[in-house]
Design a protein around this nucleic acid. Structure first.
Lengths: 344, 344
DNA sequence: ATATTATGCGTATACGTATACCCTATGGCG
DNA sequence: CGCCATAGGGTATACGTATACGCATAATAT
């Protein structure tokens, strides 16, 4: 008998117990300075005792602020749809934590590229802002981004910062990272360096990495050979196919820079199958430092992005945007992790 | 200058345009049968045109149903906190999709075990139900579960189904999987099989796997040796340490069954460092089939859980629970994936 | 001492939807 | 032809919070 233990207390209950009005409770808990320290303390104590928590729906409805961010994964329409890019998965952790730290909830959506626009649209109403993650075809979602801008939706996306496109972008220094990779390969004496990954404007991040590689080679007096570049999206299968194509072309090469670790892992399989020794015949570098990179044989040299920093920066930038504060584009450095695949 | 393009239309706008009252719009869109087909069609058309979406906050506030599920990761207090168990990460994908398919939003929370109770409590008010995922110390969160039950919160958790504990559990057939592992090792001629993973009631899933192993051994006329069991939590470091301890004890063993792939990977490192050949000297089996399992050297034989099915089942069960429908405990089969680490 | 401002809080109301309740027009039935 | 059931939809209101506004009292200025 008695009341349900789950009968959720409201601000009225607190107000009654504290001998004040409901708005005062609201003010006290939101930190308004027009409530005396004594009253506030008393209210907070009572709220604590009753296990009171502000009703998010009511609060959001009234204030028109949801205190929720949406995280949208844009994926390529993929046959093996259950697989998520491990890089984004690790970023998820840091974004979640960062949101929690600031008292924001995080809503997760996965979306196939070809899906209807209205899903994104809806998400924009369920949250104060959107974080967009996607390695997918860039052109394909440009029009969607324009929609978002048009509607005044606040969003940040992860990607290539160099092309100053639509909205606010946070990303790694892909060009600089590509340079590091190139410089490292040159340093260990490689001259004919292949690149696996789209080098078109469908994938600006990959393009930047390629540009960085070319820059490093030219700085060393080498001319990149376009015949050594092969398109690939970020998957093992695609990397395998790209490497096969390269091998079968009969081109001569002594190093591979793969635009992502997944590509690299697929490529390593193809190279090994072709009887090439790693790294003696072909050195290889990946990108992302996914957990698997330290398990391959040989272990994979790669470029580690600062994912913890990335999550923090994305959330930071988005919140600034939401609050109307000015926000600068920021670029995160990447770090070369040397492992066996480039150890000569 | 006209209205903001982002001025969100309300049900009143639709009502006005359709020449009906606001409640009729609500009824039409929610599928109430007390509105004529013609009226409903008209309302739907107008809503479509205006890009109208129901305001979730208002709707939830009024109906006290959030149409949101919360996903709670319970982690062990971990030094390398940025790492998330890859197994759970893949499950995340399937849960997300399943929620989307049913029109539910998914809210994500990470929570350290030692964190305050009130976080979970809050989550229970932001959502209709909670999905609990955690490999962590089971005893530690039993009291929290009791709290949830007490409050009438709807939840499902992933774990060991055999112990019929608090609330509703969905899980793999850990005993059966352990039996498969044991039978396979026996089949390839192994007699002294070690087990790495907590075999206490702090980790019922691991315990079940161990039980299954023992059962398979006894079925083959072998007696499991308790001296060959070592505690380990699901991390590479822990697996490494457990294997070291086993090696240093001087015990004689020709196979290892690790309670998770992460443990197995750590153990493989320790075994290799000790100069043991895999699988000739020691065969090894993991659990989970994380992506890295096919990349180790030798590649890792493991037990694959049906994660897609798991996500669907978890969401299914929780929704049934929420709607007050009866729901049975269900167990998912696991499948043995044979790779090089047991190929003799 | 009066005018002025700040402090602390109560009153009234809005946020957008869902639902209990009521009303009207129809049709079936005896 | 009167009665009731039903369909279809309107009226009023509740959900729990946040905020514009007003009004005292106290603090400060003149």
């Amino acid at each position: 008998m008695g009341r349900q233990p789950s009968a959720k207390p409201t601000s009225f209950d607190i107000a009654y117990l504290a001998g004040v009005s409901q708005p005062t409770v609201s003010r006290a808990l939101r930190g308004s300075k027009s409530v005396s320290a004594a009253t506030r303390a008393n209210i907070q104590r009572i709220a604590q005792e009753l296990n009171y928590t502000v009703d998010k729906n009511a609060s959001s409805l009234r204030s028109q602020r949801t205190h929720t961010l949406a995280l949208l994964f844009f994926e390529d329409p993929n046959p093996d749809e259950s697989m998520i890019n491990p890089f984004f998965l690790s970023m998820l952790g840091s974004i979640t934590r960062e949101c929690a730290r600031r008292g924001y909830d995080l809503l997760i959506s996965f979306q196939q590229m070809h899906n209807d626009w209205h899903v994104t649209y809806q998400d924009s109403h369920r949250s104060d802002g959107i974080i967009l993650l996607g390695y997918g075809d860039y052109q394909l979602y440009l029009t969607k981004l324009e929609h978002l801008v048009e509607m005044g939706t606040k969003f940040v996306r992860w990607g290539s910062v160099s092309e100053d496109g639509i909205g606010l972008t946070v990303g790694s220094d892909n060009v600089g990272a590509g340079e590091q990779a190139g410089a490292h390969l040159v340093e260990i004496g490689r001259r004919r360096i292949a690149f696996l990954g789209d080098a078109s404007d469908h994938a600006p991040e990959f393009q930047d990495r390629y540009d960085g590689l070319c820059r490093a080679m030219r700085a060393a007096g080498l001319e990149p050979d376009p015949a050594l570049q092969r398109d690939a999206v970020s998957s093992e299968d695609s990397g395998y196919a790209a490497a096969r194509s390269l091998i079968e072309s009969g081109q001569n090469f002594d190093a591979v820079f793969a635009a992502s670790d997944l590509i690299a892992i697929g490529a390593m399989r193809a190279l090994a199958e072709a009887g090439l020794r790693l790294p003696q015949d072909v050195a290889i570098i990946g990108f992302d430092d996914i957990p698997a990179a330290s398990l391959t044989s040989p272990t994979l040299t790669t470029l580690m992005q600062d994912m913890k920093g990335a999550g923090a920066l994305l959330v930071d930038a988005l919140l600034a945007r939401i609050d109307g504060r000015p926000v600068e584009q920021r670029i995160l450095p990447a770090r070369l992790i040397r492992r066996q695949s480039t150890a000569v």
